[in-house]
């Protein structure tokens, strides 16, 4: 079965020292070191996350190709990962990401009303970015913060028991 085999290393014709920044390379290397040497690709998820964070929150095709080159992976394997997981964005996003949990406990706690408020007040549908580019609005599946429903993740921070009023305050504070 295929999963028993170590992945095929694809050596790309690039000088790895020209990829990303030295800081990002060091961070990726820190992850690579966690896994067996022939399994560099285990670091693909943290690598994509890092690169995305340094690119204003989204991944371009060039960046995915660079991650493939850096980790000796076929490009297509990186695209597969980048398109599968919900935290990667493959198109430009707003300055902030606002992810509203709309799973069961949050729904019972008022997340649908919160989402409607956001749609009307900021004129933005789930998956869209506000006209001023301030934030991209996402409907998220369970954030695992069910006891403080509804939960909203703004960039890397959880906000809990969010009401339309407290949401507006949150948005006001963002640049």
């Amino acid at each position: 079965m295929s999963f028993r085999n170590a992945p095929l290393a694809v050596i790309h014709d690039v000088d790895k020292d020209t990829l990303f920044t030295p800081e990002i390379r060091a961070e990726i290397d820190r992850h690579v070191a966690k896994y067996p040497p022939e399994w560099k690709q285990s670091a693909v998820m943290p690598a994509l996350t890092l690169v995305q964070d340094h690119n204003g929150g989204w991944l371009s095709r060039e960046l995915m190709d660079q991650v493939a080159a850096y980790l000796d992976m076929p490009e297509v394997s990186v695209y597969e990962v980048a398109t599968f997981y919900g935290m990667y964005d493959l198109e430009p996003v707003g300055r902030h990401k606002v992810c509203v949990c709309n799973s069961i406990s949050c729904m019972l706690g008022g997340s649908e009303e919160l989402m409607q408020h956001i749609e009307h007040k900021y004129n933005v549908a789930p998956g869209e970015t506000t006209a001023d580019g301030k934030f991209t609005f996402k409907e998220f599946e369970c954030l695992g913060a069910c006891r403080h429903a509804p939960a909203v993740m703004v960039d890397k921070t959880y906000h809990e028991c969010v009401t339309p009023e407290s949401f507006d305050k949150l948005i006001k504070k963002l640049d």
Binding site: M1, F3, P7, E80, V81, F84
Partner: peptide, 13 residues
């Protein structure tokens, strides 16, 4: 989860 650690899409085995 194991697939995901192996750097792949998370599809069960």
């Amino acid at each position: 989860l194991l697939e995901s650690i192996e750097g792949k899409k998370g599809q069960p085995r």
